[in-house]
Computed example of a mutant assay.
Amino acid sequence: MTFVTTLRFTSGDRHVLDSVVNDIKQTARRKGVELKGPHSKPPEDLRVPQSKCPGRDSKEFRPWRYTIYTRTIHILGHGEFARDTAARDFPDDIYVEADVDRITGGGADT
């Protein structure tokens, strides 16, 4: 039975995001950890309306626009490396999600 840890990183700062993900990738390579990714999702452009004052009929400022970037890494096995990576102190503008899946072989279930 093998565990696959999926780490999903999102940020509005693409350069910081790429720097963090590249650092993880280089660390995995040095330690011999099997890693897939980083996989990039297309950037998500968001728009937030801004009212000049509260109320339904209020005039609005131009909407606030920003872009969210996402990178996904899959760590195969190496639970300790995956835990250490997910628990790292990341910059404040990086959001991290972790999912762990159990993969069984093609043989009989045990």
Rank of each mutant, 00 (worst) to 15 (best):
F9K: 09
V21L: 07
P42H: 08
A86R: 03
V33C: 01
R8C: 12
H74A: 08
P91D: 07
A82R: 01
K25N: 13
A28W: 00
D99N: 15
D13R: 02
D89F: 03
P54K: 11
T110C: 05
G55R: 08
I24K: 00
E34T: 14
L46M: 06
T2Y: 07
V48P: 05
F81R: 04
D93E: 11
K36H: 09
A86N: 08
Q50E: 10
D18S: 14
T104V: 11
H39A: 14
S51E: 06
A86P: 11
T2R: 11
K36Y: 04
P42T: 09
F3G: 08
V100C: 12
R62G: 09
E80R: 12
F3Q: 13
E80A: 13
T10N: 12
D99R: 15
Q50T: 09
H39T: 12
V4E: 07
G107A: 15
P91K: 08
K25R: 15
S11V: 01
A86S: 15
T70L: 01
F90Q: 01
V100R: 14
T85F: 02
P43L: 02
R30S: 13
G55M: 05
A82W: 00
E80G: 07
E97Q: 12
T104P: 02
C53L: 06
H15V: 14
D57N: 15
R62D: 14
T85V: 07
E97Y: 01
L7A: 10
S40Q: 11
P63V: 01
T10W: 00
S40W: 01
A87K: 14
L35Y: 02
G105Q: 06
T104N: 07
F61T: 10
D84F: 07
R8Y: 02
V16Y: 02
H39D: 09
R88H: 04
T104K: 07
A108N: 11
K31E: 14
F81Y: 03
P54T: 10
L35N: 04
G77S: 02
T110F: 07
W64M: 15
G12H: 02
D23S: 12
V20E: 03
D93T: 04
T27R: 15
T72W: 02
E44Q: 11
F61E: 14
R88N: 08
N22D: 14
R102M: 13
T27F: 03
I103E: 12
R62Y: 08
A28I: 00
G79P: 09
C53D: 13
V4Y: 02
Q26I: 05
R56Y: 15
D92W: 00
R71I: 05
I94C: 03
S58V: 03
G12C: 03
R62L: 11
A108M: 10
V16E: 12
F3K: 13
M1L: 10
T5F: 05
